[in-house]
Design a protein around this nucleic acid. Sequence first.
RNA 1: GGAGAGAUGGCCGAGUUGGUUGAAGGCGCUCGCCUGGAAAGCGAGUACAUGGGGUUGACCUGUGUCGAGGGUUCGAAUCCCUCUCUCUCCGCCA
Length: 421
Amino acid sequence: MLDLRFVRSNPEIVKEALQKRNSSLSLDDFLKQEENRRKILFDVEKLKAQRNSVSDEVGCRKKNGEDAQDLIQEMRKVGEEIKALERQLRKVEEEMEKVLYEIPNVPHESVPVGVDESGNVEVRAWGTPRQFDFEPLPHYEIGEKLDILDFNRAGKVTGARFSFYKGLGAKLERALISFMLDKHTEKGYLEVFPPFMVHRNSMIGTGQLPKFEEDAFKIEGTEYFLIPTAEVPVTNLYREEIIDAEKLPIYHCAYSACFRAEAGSAGRDTRGLIRQHQFNKVELVKFSLPENSYDELEKLTRDAESSLQELELPYRVMNLSTGDLGFSAAKTYDLEVWLPSFNTYREISSCSNFEDFQARRASIRFRREPKGKPEYLHTLNGSGLAIGRTLAAILENYQEEDGRVRVPKALIPYMGVEYIG
RNA sequence: GGAGAGAUGGCCGAGUUGGUUGAAGGCGCUCGCCUGGAAAGCGAGUACAUGGGGUUGACCUGUGUCGAGGGUUCGAAUCCCUCUCUCUCCGCCA
């Protein structure tokens, strides 16, 4: 969320940001309400000040055994007025809060302006897509032929967009999780294993709620949500805390299962592992000083890229345009891996700087000096990487004509075999 | 799930016949004195949010905050209600 005072004193910046994001949100009503809010607040505080001083006098008189009935009568009326004004104030604040929580982050100046993903800009590419001298199969066909992926039985047991991994398929999934956690831990990310469910306030903290409730799975009969990414519990790890500046930056990596309702994606990527209701992911999360967060974003992106490089999977890095940028992000690099059966690059990681947008929502602050004023820190995160899509990319990029799949060199120690099949 | 106890400032911990308690005391921290230096000792200072004024984050001032929300009252950390979390015991379970 944006700082209310920032919105108040820089309405033109916010309006421009909304426009760049093709948002229809109108700010003018909001600004009028803010003016109104401050007026009511001013009035109510004046009355409270009066009540406080008169109440002191009542106490004084009673102590001296004097009568204070006249003051009490008078204050009874003031009390009524205060209550009425507070009701008004609460109503205005509730309405404003709704809007404030739905204003997206202001894109960084280096973000290209665009209407949708077609406005994304390629920053760099790595590796060369392999030339096949046979027709490469899609990963779901490879997986089913090798009997390491089973979508049909998952449909029977649970439903569409779920899958079973079997044998070396299950082992490959597990190997990728271990591999990535090991690599990132070596780079200085502290591993955490988070809860897979969080309460509503954590979802609000990272920006999934209130706007995108239909995308989340909620546990019926509770206030818990299944996490759509480890970003949610790990970023909220320090919610409502004030961190010493010398502890920053903090780097965490976390494996978690991720659960997404995929509302509105009917008909898209219905086959295979690309778009599932449940998938595994290793996530990188950073807490940074504000002045360093864009350097940290570059490093974070490189760290996510290194996993693809070690697995020798071709990819490209895209700077997302204002039309494709996520709600909470100020800037995002997507890593897109080459998928032969799609004959294109597909998103496998998303690395974002949220600046203080999430930190303000979750109240995560830091102190530069022991007696300094707390400031909001900057949060960042990126997939390092989405495991299911990585597995799909390995199956497709490493497939052989005889139907087997070669195991990437980096994974052989984890797999114990050189081929699947 | 059942029974009980509790939640106060960075930490520990007073305060439960409602009225100079934003909150005693201690620890920690910051600055100063002392010292060749350090420790000890002494002195001073040590919350956050928000409204208004202003030399527009020097400063002055109002309001709110003693787990969260609501209520009673002229006035609530103190009384009432609801919720959350923590601890102990029992039950259950991986």
